[in-house]
Nucleic acid binder design. Structure first.
Lengths: 191, 191
DNA sequence: AAAACAGTAGACAGACCGGTCTTTTGTATA
DNA sequence: TATACAAAAGACCGGTCTGTCTACTGTTTT
């Protein structure tokens, strides 16, 4: 079965939004590149904003799924705690790497585009939560506050690594972030 | 003497670009809000892109000047090394805080807007360099590589703190970044 | 007084925006 | 075969985009 039109739209819009930016990409460009009619697009999505949200969710879901698998394949301990940086290194090496879709889109938002902002916040909170699970599973006897401290530290390092490696077109921020991360749990028993 | 038209344009455009975004702000909005004629604007800047670059430089120069003064007013040692996070805390509390203008604009760029990208890269390198000076002035006997490691660590923490505090509309990333930073120079003699 | 200049006001060009609507085509189901 | 439906194609709407150009108004300088 060929991919559905719905998926085709999301896929095309994703590439255009991610590479050229949300506001710089027009509806006409999306329909032209995906080879569908305008009426068809508006039968599947009621507005450009909705396509943007579908784009963000598409990227985020794929990212989270891959990340979870990647971390799961690793041996427990430091390997799992630092896995996100190696995962990012793979991401960085992919074609058309352009940083974080969420942070990129955040930069484009005007105060009225509140729905999109909320989607980005929710996704980042999901990532924070996942990192919290990884921390809890790999370091023994942590309080909730300690888990939060370590996971949000990992989160900050990850997010700056993805944004700065994109800005400088260089992966030193990824190495740097990974080398700073262990100090977050230096004096703790990593399983 | 009243502010010159040139400065008035930059000032108006700065506010609009920073709050509503670069692509979402039109030339007509800029001339309406600054009360000048369109021909006047195009007498001072040859394109919207040039206004964007003037906006970025305007913000960056003001930021660097204030930061340098802020750091200089501090006692040497840890106080100076961590000053940037307190400086950011002040920034965060200002009205209309909207994160980092550079990273925001970076998110809007399509591959063809190379000139603007280069301006952002240059500004961030300037910040890196300044942080390197602060590190060198406050920790004794460091090799060039060690200075680079510590200053780029501070830089990554600072940049994620500004972006994430904007994203979440909360200053926990600033506190978190400041609390992680000392581990960068934990075993070194801070003057 | 005359010329030069800096600014205002706004028409205009040509392209593009998001979004709606009508008409036509092809296909699947009853 | 008849009906229903999904999609294609693209005209069209009102509006906005960057950027240019003309015509006019003051002020300053020669």
């Amino acid at each position: 079965m060929k991919t559905s039109i719905h998926e085709k739209i999301i896929d095309t819009a994703s590439n255009l939004f991610y590479i050229h930016g949300y506001h710089s990409t027009g509806i006409n460009e999306i329909i032209a590149k995906s080879g569908i009619a305008k009426a068809t697009l508006y039968g599947h999505f009621k507005s450009k904003e909705d396509i943007c949200i579908a784009y963000l969710n598409h990227r985020h879901d794929g990212f989270m799924k891959s990340l979870e698998e990647f971390v799961g394949r690793r041996k427990k301990g430091k390997n799992q705690l630092l896995a996100i940086f190696d995962f990012l290194q793979d991401l960085y090496r992919e074609d058309h790497f352009n940083g974080c879709w969420g942070i990129k889109t955040l930069g484009e938002l005007s105060p009225k585009e509140k729905k999109i902002l909320e989607v980005i916040q929710k996704q980042k909170k999901e990532l924070l939560l996942f990192l919290g699970e990884v921390v809890g599973a790999n370091i023994a006897n942590l309080s909730k506050a300690e888990i939060e401290r370590i996971s949000s530290g990992l989160y900050l390092l990850y997010d700056s690594a993805i944004t700065e490696s994109h800005l400088f077109k260089n992966d030193w921020p990824i190495f740097m972030a990974k080398s700073i991360a262990p100090s977050l749990f230096a004096d703790l028993e990593v399983e």
